[in-house]
């Protein structure tokens, strides 16, 4: 495979040519016999306009996405607190804690944040992150170590799982 690719020494040397090289005859011909400078300028201008209009379209799409996920950092910090509440519930379940964590989950749901399912599901690295695994090759049953969340369908934090059996 290595022999098939041409190696061009000056493209891979430690001196980086910043400008593109262009055969000199090509340069000569464009400068000598440039038929219509105005047309070239006009075309460049049209391209700039087109670039700009396309950019505006892209930008508005990006803006939408930005607004959608703008509070992702905050949500992640809130999820950390929810984690602790849930851990607390496992250790010392109290009515108050139960209510608080339920309210919390409802709040997150309002902002498009949903818990990732792990029980009865099979391991999928798009949604789950394995942190421990038994040596059995068919280990596909999961035990959730830390819940994961999606926000408007995007994984903001994968569920951490132990693969067992």
């Amino acid at each position: 495979m290595e022999d098939e690719t041409k190696n061009e020494p000056n493209e891979t040397s430690e001196i980086d040519k910043v400008k593109a090289q262009r055969p000199s005859e090509e340069r000569g011909s464009t400068e000598a016999s440039r038929p219509n400078v105005e047309e070239e300028y006009l075309n460049n201008w049209k391209r700039e306009r087109a670039d700009f209009l396309n950019y505006k379209k892209d930008e508005s799409r990006r803006m939408e996405e930005f607004v959608r996920y703008a509070n992702e950092d905050l949500i992640l910090e809130l999820i950390d607190i929810l984690d602790n509440m849930e851990l607390g519930l496992k250790h010392e379940p109290t009515e108050l804690l139960k209510k608080l964590s339920k309210d919390f989950e409802e709040l997150l749901k309002k902002y498009g944040v949903e818990k990732i399912k792990t029980e009865g599901e099979s391991f999928d690295p798009v949604l789950h992150e394995a942190v421990e695994s038994s040596e059995v090759p068919e280990a596909r049953l999961m035990e959730e170590v830390r819940p994961g969340y999606t926000m408007h369908g995007k994984v903001v934090r994968p569920a951490r799982v132990k693969l067992i059996k």
Partner: peptide, 18 residues
């Protein structure tokens, strides 16, 4: 993966311990 599926990037990282 075990069934020949290919993972690249963050998904590959998430399944690393398995």
């Amino acid at each position: 993966g075990k069934n020949g599926e290919r993972y690249v990037g963050v998904t590959a990282k998430r399944q690393a311990v398995t």
